[in-house]
């Protein structure tokens, strides 16, 4: 390791490490595009598991979508679900192994479109699982097609003139939808486009995992993320666009905490 600056030689020592990659992530290079929010959320989930010391008691469910290879990146027991069926698979695993920590990691196409049915019913049954939901308003992996969460007027490859609600419906706010179900215990929406929000998102993910000890119902964390390839922007522009546009339709903050709605829907 070559150190560029003379003054840094004193600082770069093992005892001074303030941050390094968690051991719950493998050494594989993430398959995501440069600047994608998936990487940050992977890290937050992995760090939470490391801090809670539950690496050997956690089972993750990988979705279909950009995060389909999540089992390559988490050093955990993982299962790969059919498209949209992650909450159903998580239900089975949690009922077979009630002492394990079970989480699903899904994108908006997987959770809100193809898996809308599974998501709503798993939440309605009040399964004691954690759902991590990455919302970037587009089908990233298949080439930027319109998703249920695509904003009004947003241009995608299947809505080239912008999403017209009269023809294509309104953006689906599934997080608000499932917050109304009595089976959910903790529902929140976070983002990872700025360091301060990353820290908040980590706290939310930690709470969602801690809730599994209580056996009170589903903990659901939505993360509003970017898709710079699908949106056809640079990563920095995409984060700016997210702040200006996505957050109007998907406002950040807790929606349901400890089984009580904290926000008017």
């Amino acid at each position: 390791m070559d150190v560029k600056f003379e003054s840094w030689k004193e600082i770069i020592k093992d005892e001074n490490i303030a941050f390094k990659k968690t051991k719950v992530l493998t050494d594989n290079i993430l398959s995501y595009c440069p600047g994608c929010g998936h990487g940050v959320v992977h890290r937050l989930v992995a760090e939470t598991i490391e801090e809670m010391e539950i690496q050997d008691q956690t089972i993750g469910i990988a979705p279909v979508g950009c995060a389909v290879l999540a089992y390559d990146f988490f050093d955990l027991d993982m299962q790969q679900a059919a498209h949209g069926r992650a909450p159903a698979l998580a239900t089975a695993i949690k009922r077979l192994y009630p002492e394990k920590f079970v989480f699903t990691y899904q994108g908006d196409g997987d959770l809100a479109a193809i898996g809308g049915n599974e998501t709503i019913h798993a939440c309605n049954r009040g399964e004691n699982i954690t759902i991590i939901f990455i919302n970037n308003g587009i089908y990233g992996m298949t080439g930027g097609q319109m998703a249920p969460t695509t904003l009004e007027g947003m241009v995608t490859s299947t809505s080239p003139y912008g999403r017209d609600p009269k023809l294509m419906g309104y953006p689906l706010r599934i997080t608000e939808l499932i917050a109304m179900l009595p089976g959910t215990y903790y529902v929140t929406r976070q983002a990872v486009y700025k360091p301060a929000y990353v820290r908040k998102a980590k706290k939310a993910i930690r709470k969602a995992f801690e809730n599994q000890k209580l056996n009170k119902g589903v903990s659901f964390v939505e993360i509003v993320s970017n898709c710079n390839s699908g949106w056809k922007m640079t990563p920095v522009e995409a984060n700016k666009w997210l702040e200006e546009n996505m957050l109007k339709t998907f406002p950040l903050g807790d929606i349901k905490v400890d089984g009580e709605l904290v926000k008017e829907l």
Binding site: F19, K20, P34, C36
Partner: peptide
């Protein structure tokens, strides 16, 4: 810690003294 928080690929190691 801003850079290590935002880095999607966790390639930065931070030292503090």
């Amino acid at each position: 810690e801003n850079c290590v928080m935002i880095c999607p690929d966790t390639v930065i190691t931070l030292y503090r003294a």
